[in-house]
Write a protein that binds this DNA or RNA. Sequence first.
DNA 1: TTAAATACGGAGGCTCCCTCCGTTTATCAA
DNA 2: TTGATAAACGGAGGGAGCCTCCGTATTTAA
Lengths: 193, 193
Amino acid sequence: MATEANPIGRKPRADAERNRLKLLAAARAAFTAQGELVSMEEVARSAGVGIGTLYRHFPNRNDLVVEVYRNEMARLLEAARNLSGTDEPLEALRLWLLLFVDHLADNIILADALQALVGDKAKDDAAATEQLSEALDLLVARPVSNGEIPDPGIDPLDLLRTLYGVATATPGVEWPKAARRMVDILINGMKAG
Amino acid sequence: MATEANPIGRKPRADAERNRLKLLAAARAAFTAQGELVSMEEVARSAGVGIGTLYRHFPNRNDLVVEVYRNEMARLLEAARNLSGTDEPLEALRLWLLLFVDHLADNIILADALQALVGDKAKDDAAATEQLSEALDLLVARPVSNGEIPDPGIDPLDLLRTLYGVATATPGVEWPKAARRMVDILINGMKAG
DNA sequence: TTAAATACGGAGGCTCCCTCCGTTTATCAA
DNA sequence: TTGATAAACGGAGGGAGCCTCCGTATTTAA
């Protein structure tokens, strides 16, 4: 999908594509290891390219972070699609939220990046946010329509924002337990609506 | 409370105290108007002091933010203490959480600073976090002990983290409505525990 | 009034993010 | 195969921010 012939007719240069992939891999590794605070210089260095090259591929820091995170998102969306076909709608939602917690736990270091997708910087990656939202809508709509829960009266993304808050605002590494417990509270709370 | 004689015996200098207050006021105004991104230089300038003076009073950016926010916290703690004596424990908790949302709404611009109190940077201001936690424990313990809700199995601060997540990760200005709705979901969710 | 303690302010070090542009390399037409 | 040219490369350097250092100025106490 990145090797299409471009409109001008010339094939994209192989080195460009190669460096782009190297940069994404290096950024992924660096962000995971050290958090979003890694300097752009260090990402470029560990990818073995110059800083200028990094900036040609990703015009600013946020673009790079968003791109790295977008890949992480794929599995989650896939899971949502699979679950949205199961027999127990509410349980499907619950399981998916737990999956989201695991996902956060694996990528807590990228949590600030996540905010770029769920939060205010969303303009930068409206497509991914929309996908996430669609997946969630699917999972929430079914238990609503079958009466398991009344109209929750919230944007389904708020469920994720909630978990994001627990994940990022809790000191230490014990937060996933709290977040999982929070999933039950949220589900029960919506049922009781 | 700041004009005590110090152990050495010398009275603190008047200009120091004056500048400290000017700095706090300027920081409060600047953070509220422009968010936490305001530069330290600008805070110093608008307070009419040099950057060196700012750093003598507040050794780093976070110390300044925490100090500004600590003042904002007072009303909230006061309210918690008052509510913790009312007749309907669960309703008291609900009301206080709504108050917390209002508080966030008034200070959304300082939300990142809030995280310093509820979140990982908490070491920087352990005292304030502990107070907040104590107030919450009070409000949560009563509905638990009188059976209105079973042991929620979470750190009460998680309730705030949840609301913080909704407040900061939602684009635009519509989030307080969602956060208020979330308060009900949380309360109901804990009841159904 | 004078000495000592304390506070003041801003130049400058260091680190970032990002831009600019001269140099190098890959692609394509002949 | 070769040469022309579009495209990519890399890193010096501009600009901004955080924070330190230290010579100067002010306040306090004797």
